[in-house]
Design a binder for these strands. Sequence first.
DNA 1: AGCAATACTTACCCACCGTAACTTTGGTAT
DNA 2: ATACCAAAGTTACGGTGGGTAAGTATTGCT
Lengths: 184, 184
Amino acid sequence: MVDRGLVLDAAERVIRRDGAGVSLDAIALEAGVTKPIVYARVGGRTDLADALSRRLAARLVIAAGAAIGDLAYGRAMLTAFVEANLSTLAEHRDLFLYVTGGTAADTPRRTLYLAERSTTPMAQQLAAWRTNQGLDPAVAVPWAYAVIGMLHLVSLWWITEMDRPAELLAEQVAELLWSGLAGP
Amino acid sequence: MVDRGLVLDAAERVIRRDGAGVSLDAIALEAGVTKPIVYARVGGRTDLADALSRRLAARLVIAAGAAIGDLAYGRAMLTAFVEANLSTLAEHRDLFLYVTGGTAADTPRRTLYLAERSTTPMAQQLAAWRTNQGLDPAVAVPWAYAVIGMLHLVSLWWITEMDRPAELLAEQVAELLWSGLAGP
DNA sequence: AGCAATACTTACCCACCGTAACTTTGGTAT
DNA sequence: ATACCAAAGTTACGGTGGGTAAGTATTGCT
């Protein structure tokens, strides 16, 4: 009896090994079962990708939380947050591509889901901080999406080039995020 | 004789009408030709999506340029730039989804292409401005990707919700971009 | 032992991308 | 005028991948 988690583990292994273009048959083969079993456990390709996007989102949130630790709100915290996101997405490169790829109908849904999971805790913190500073907290949600979109595209670009160390890029992105284009 | 441009026009029409999930057969039907003609003119699905992404990228660049006009570098210019991007992507909603969707192998390539076309002029302006201000211009390229990634995800989110006017959202995003999370 | 439910496999269908082989049309040389 | 050939296009097919229906083995219960 192969349970749902083992199928997802197998999917992650074969995606990591063979890239984001893998078929369900390949995943079933890797899991040591046949295709209908995959359907019984996790559903079709869409459900599989959804489940994997939940795993990836959870890892992003955990990595971000661990990196931030109890740093105070500020540029150092932001740098840690950015670098955690960059590293995690680079670490799960093909999984990231698998989750954000797929059919045109699913891509936006999952992209937004992946983003939303990261934005939710971030928007809360951001709203609290701005309220505390006497600023309008209404911008928290769009700003959270803005930050995550920034990180995702920068990650995608960085993943394909990998021409500079993660720390440098994280510093640069954090500077933009913290001080803006206007500069300090 | 149906030329390449007419096939691309037909593709845009059917994508707008039926959504981003359309097949090549549907596009060929709309163009009034058979499938092999589509292959002879524009190549396969990948080449078609590439060609459409070039069109979309060109429109983004043109819209941005027109919106900026001869505004001086600053928050007002940034707001115009952001709003031009939001509106253009919303106007070409399904085309945007078609271009950024597709197989896992093509998605990152085209996403980066679409981004790169917007980032190139922006990175140049940004580098020039920073040099002029006595600041380090080395961050221009990663910052340009950061800005475009921000705009793309915010657009995607906004497109699916459409819960606030474009001007307000553009103001909010421009504020983040110009002044950063730290605030003015 | 016999029966039934569960778990899985084989075999298949369908949609879609891509292409090979066949047909038509229009111009051209003899 | 006719036979030929190249261009342009259509029909028909192969291959792959997602998804499912029908058949088979295995386990537990009476």
